[in-house]
Design a protein around this nucleic acid. Structure first.
Lengths: 339, 339
DNA sequence: TGTTCTTTTGTTATCGATAACAATCGTGCG
DNA sequence: CGCACGATTGTTATCGATAACAAAAGAACA
């Protein structure tokens, strides 16, 4: 317990009367060590409270045993679900997941990626397809599989597991149109930071244009992450400027919830006077009153598929980098119902 | 880019015409290297796309450069805020934060802690004061500062930055009593897993008892994490069993939101017919209609204080392990207003 | 019993950086 | 000019585990 020096394998080996190499083997699975020896070594290790020095192990074996992932925000149920799916998918392989968050900032992402690469991960997962040039170069030169997620970059670095954010936006525009709306607004973020949100907006506006509608009812000067508060303030501004708006799509469910409740506080009825839609299939959109129409991006499945792609890339056989397009689905709820 | 072998310091050294040691110094701050040499080396490193092998660096210097933290759930705004506060507080020291989540399971926490310790973190942060015996032994024997957070354990392992969950529950019980309620329920989780939630419940019931009220209107068989859905279902069950209940505290804001909206869907008016309160000061409690009374546990500050405690523990001078009790504050909103 | 094959254990070299110490360079000052 | 001292650079040993190869011990069979 209170040793001045931490125990090493040599200490365990001495106590168990074997060589350090045998200790090394005994503490790992799938190694050729007799059960009796293994037990004796395990016991000796426990006795002196030996904890493997993985820093030495990693250095020696050149296997770090982890996969690194950068996400824009740690406090986001969608990315958390993806991380969970990825963790679960990696479990059996013994790979751990290390997470870092970039705060929707590509410069910070670059810093993070570099910090991770210094620790020699066995694969890298990043969110989105927008990165600094240097970040792309670092990832390309890393020599490990790279997976871009939550997006379908036109010029991918390596592997991709995502969906079309533009499509998701377009889907919602058509839905609102189908519900009879012709004066439709959008609340979203400053696209320079949240490029996926910007893609949804782009797809949304493109669809409006195809449908012959104006796309000028926009509040898009918010700084990601767009929270409930930002959604609420944006809705107040939007309705002040364009009071005859009948439907609004928000870049995320959180902002949609804030926006919807801001409208309700103003005395509008949802969906009778105003339809509201979000994105992401967060819990809050299901439990809000009324329930909020949203898009399910299958966050968990993105993680699971990413795990599969990584494991296949790390397998012996030569594998062609793949791009997995997970289609999104529309969840229609009362917030956009025709009444 | 496409080297078959990754570049090492020796390669950079050769290119820059210096010794590997000088390269090592040049790539670290606060080292004695002339500006000219430093520039030349940096340039050479960039040229061949050299990325420091931190696994070797860590091994050699016995400084891993990271602090590990276990949290019960990654998808929880409170713990995310704490993690953010901790990250920010550690930034200047060059320490990174690695997160792992235990899924409200002490056995999983033990596994996580052991995995982290193998990588020799410079400090360990855990959530709560309940751990397996072996986990406590591992942490005690780790030789690094350990901080337990979000709790005030009676028998701490080392350092503590938290608050009294029992107090928080009691505060809310008294508040509901003061608002005139006498038939008060509680919705929470299975205490074996979420011990902090159980502490809030204990404090809550103790306060009710002191106030001379019954504490039997309980729905506490839920499995953490308690989501909006669980809150909603629990409220349905609670109101079916005890229809005359006039106030309910929920173990978290998420469950409170689900519970409140379930009651509203049943036709109850909040707060006129039923008061609802939560815990955690999540965004949703502020933006819900009506706003939900809650307890602000200062999640971000817990992280910031934890960073301070760690840095002080890692400083040269001998420091006595400290316990920081961050008091909570009650945020009263319309969901518990007298009308 | 001796031979062959498999399983178990041991030996040696090595991963890439940095600590600790040594040497050299450069500058200021008497 | 020569000395002293600080700044800069180099040399050597080392961190702790594991890969690769080698040897020994057991098992199987004729």
């Amino acid at each position: 317990m209170t040793e001045n020096r931490k125990a090493t394998m040599a200490d365990v080996a001495r106590l168990a009367g074997v060589s350090p190499m045998t200790v090394s083997r005994a503490l790992r699975p799938n190694t050729s060590v007799s059960q009796a020896t293994r037990d004796r070594i395990r016991e000796a290790a426990d006795k002196i409270g030996y904890v493997l020095d993985q820093t030495a192990s990693v250095f020696s074996s050149r296997r770090s045993g982890f996969v690194a992932m950068t996400i824009p925000s740690i406090n986001n149920a969608n990315f958390a679900d993806t991380a969970r799916g990825l963790t679960e998918g990696l479990q059996d392989s013994g790979l751990e997941l290390l997470l870092g968050y970039s705060d929707y900032d590509t410069a910070e992402e670059e810093r993070l990626v570099e910090a991770f690469l210094r620790r020699r991960p066995e694969a890298m997962v990043v969110t989105g397809g927008a990165h600094t040039e240097r970040c792309r170069a670092l990832l390309r030169g890393s020599g490990v599989p790279v997976v871009e997620t939550w997006d379908l970059p036109s010029n991918p670095i390596d592997r991709v597991v995502g969906f079309s954010n533009a499509d998701a936006g377009a889907r919602m525009a058509r839905h609102l149109f189908d519900q009879g709306h012709r004066k439709i607004g959008f609340i979203g973020g400053n696209g320079a930071r949240d490029t996926r949100g910007a893609d949804r907006q782009r797809g949304f506006l493109q669809a409006l244009s195809i449908l012959g509608l104006d796309g000028d009812r926009l509040i898009t000067d918010l700084d990601p992450p767009i929270t409930m508060r930002e959604g609420a303030e944006a809705m107040d501004r939007l309705l002040e400027r364009w009071p005859d708006t009948t439907a609004v799509m928000c870049v995320s469910d959180l902002s949609a919830f804030g926006a919807m409740n801001a409208a309700i506080r103003q005395g509008r009825r949802v969906p009778e006077d105003l339809a509201v839609a979000g994105f992401g299939a967060y819990d809050v959109s299901e439990h809000a009153i009324p329930g909020i129409t949203t898009v399910d991006a299958q966050a968990h499945r993105i993680g699971a598929e990413t795990a599969r792609v990584i494991l296949s890339a790390l397998s012996e056989d030569e594998v062609e980098p793949e791009t997995v397009d997970l289609k999104v689905s529309l969840l229609t709820r009362r917030s956009t119902a025709v009444v």
